[in-house]
């Protein structure tokens, strides 16, 4: 069984986000990247499947140079092959474009299962997995929290999340594209030394972009969320803040 996992680099929202001078994108030099969280889960699910089915896992890193670090980490975790897809900064959150970049080579590679995060932190358009499903004429299910594949590798049974903790169990013919919400176990940890080692010996296949590309929407304006918070801020040291919280709870008979 051949499994492909798409790993996108997205801005780390824990860091300060700086709007660029064009007022419609982030300032490239200030962006700190992380691998999209849901994509990390897609990788974990692929590695879980590899352990069960002796599958071959291809990690496909999308973005700038940082994507190579994510690929090294994926190899260190157990992926078998790394493909780097350079995407210019301004197009990284555009899933329509990513789908049109990725679809031709993915079709040629003939994967049985394509996994990626159901959403990306910086996306403004539709989910990548759903777009790829259409372009590859493959069935697609999103919001997936577990995947089981039958012995001949012809069909998968997936669990899809609905509100209230409800799960739908769906059967999907393979090959298929799945949008992963979370893996059935936490993404595995791999020591930095092992990633560094994988990086030194990393063998990358680099994909060149096809000439005809589609585009999704682009913001005309990008702003930081209103910095004026509605919350009344409690100030002082820890002890003073604790006193204020206790007072609030007392006023409402909560203690």
């Amino acid at each position: 069984m051949k499994i492909a996992v798409l790993l996108r680099q997205v801005p780390d929202v824990v860091e300060e986000l700086v709007i660029a001078e064009d007022a419609r994108s982030l300032a490239e030099d200030d962006v700190m990247y992380i691998t999209n969280e849901a994509d990390e889960h897609a990788l974990e699910e692929a590695l879980v499947l590899k352990a069960r089915h002796a599958a071959r896992v291809t990690a496909i890193g999308v973005g700038g140079e940082e994507a190579k670090d994510a690929l090294a980490a994926a190899i260190a975790k157990g992926a078998d092959e790394a493909v780097f897809v350079p995407v210019p900064f301004e197009h990284r959150g555009d899933n329509h474009r990513l789908a049109s970049v990725l679809a031709p080579s993915m079709k040629a590679a003939g994967y049985d299962l394509i996994l990626t995060g159901v959403w990306a932190a910086d996306q403004l358009d539709a989910g990548l997995a759903g777009l790829l499903g259409v372009r590859l004429s493959l069935p697609y299910v999103g919001g997936v929290v577990s995947v089981a594949v039958d012995a001949p590798g012809t069909k998968g049974t997936v669990r899809k999340e609905y509100p209230g903790g409800r799960l739908a169990v769906l059967e999907v013919g393979l090959p298929a594209v799945l949008g992963v919400q979370s893996a059935e176990q936490p993404p595995r940890y791999v020591p930095v030394s092992k990633v560094a080692q994988a990086k030194r010996t990393l063998q990358l296949t680099e994909l060149t972009e096809p000439t005809v590309l589609e585009m999704g929407v682009r913001p005309t304006k990008l702003l930081k969320s209103d910095p004026i918070s509605r919350a009344e801020m409690l100030t002082g040291d820890v002890s003073q803040v604790a006193d204020q919280i206790v007072r609030l709870l007392r006023e409402r008979s909560l203690v």
Binding site: D125, A126, L128, A129, L131, V134, G143, Y162
Partner: peptide, 19 residues
Amino acid sequence: STGIDLAGPVSEALGASVV
């Protein structure tokens, strides 16, 4: 969960923009 699944396929089928 329902809407996110439909956006991609419907967008591709109709050539629609998605926000």
